[in-house]
Design a protein around this nucleic acid. Structure first.
Lengths: 124, 124
DNA sequence: TATTTATTGCAAATGCATTATCATTTGCAT
DNA sequence: ATGCAAATGATAATGCATTTGCAATAAATA
């Protein structure tokens, strides 16, 4: 990551414009609107570097596979809309506070994946 | 699934003996203790049939990939121990009851994946 | 502006989980 | 006990996401 390139700027811009979990094809599609030549291999290469640099984070969604999002966000969970198939961010924590692991267990982290319909898809 | 075979019985037995999320290699390893010849392709074939028959369910763990568990269990979540690397079942629900999705959203399902240390790995 | 070399685009290659092929074995009805 | 089709074991093949090789392009630096 020693040089500024239009492709890399485009990819970062995609994450600014779409504040939700994105797949490689989505990143490539949105990025192509900025830099039409944008190649899939270039997306992979830059995503890898951005993850290594700590600017974006990989999320393995149980239903959708590998996705990416910007790191600079506070604790949140992901909501997958079965209507529009997008994954949006729900700020805050949905985990019960009390006593969810058995005695003796140490809880270090958790991931919560919600799904259903977003307001647009649910409302008629 | 028209015939009873030693292999299929062995695989079902594995799930009875190990009441947690199992990977294909784990199923194969435990099953081999019952039927030594047990082949990996046979495991895949039988797992597929057992899933189709509704006897076991596939779970895509965000950190560990594809795993399987018996269906006949009430609502629960999964705890991945970073010590012994097993995934155990925590009965009950750890989701906050109130107002976790924005207005207008419809919540249909959720998956919660916890991780940390189990009692055996945490206790000294 | 010329030079250097990181980065790109393209296509082929890789790794991996899963599936298909096929000869052999085995459950089960007769 | 026999015959037939389902199931197995061994291995090759597939699909897919991701990676790599390489020539061409384009940032940065002098």
């Amino acid at each position: 990551m020693k040089r500024q390139t239009a492709q890399r700027r485009a990819i970062e811009q995609v994450f600014e414009q779409h504040d939700r979990l994105l797949s490689i094809p989505e990143i490539r599609a949105y990025g192509s609107q900025i830099v039409p030549s944008l190649n899939q291999a270039t997306v992979y290469r830059n995503i890898k570097q951005l993850v290594a640099a700590g600017r974006i984070r990989q999320v393995n969604h149980p239903d959708l596979g590998t996705r990416y999002e910007r790191t600079q966000k506070s604790h949140h969970h992901h909501f997958h809309c079965n209507g529009c198939n997008r994954v949006m961010v729900l700020p805050g924590c949905a985990l019960k506070d009390d006593h969810i692991v058995p005695d003796g267990f140490v809880l270090e982290s958790h991931d919560i994946f919600l799904s259903g319909l977003c307001d647009q898809c649910a409302g008629h």
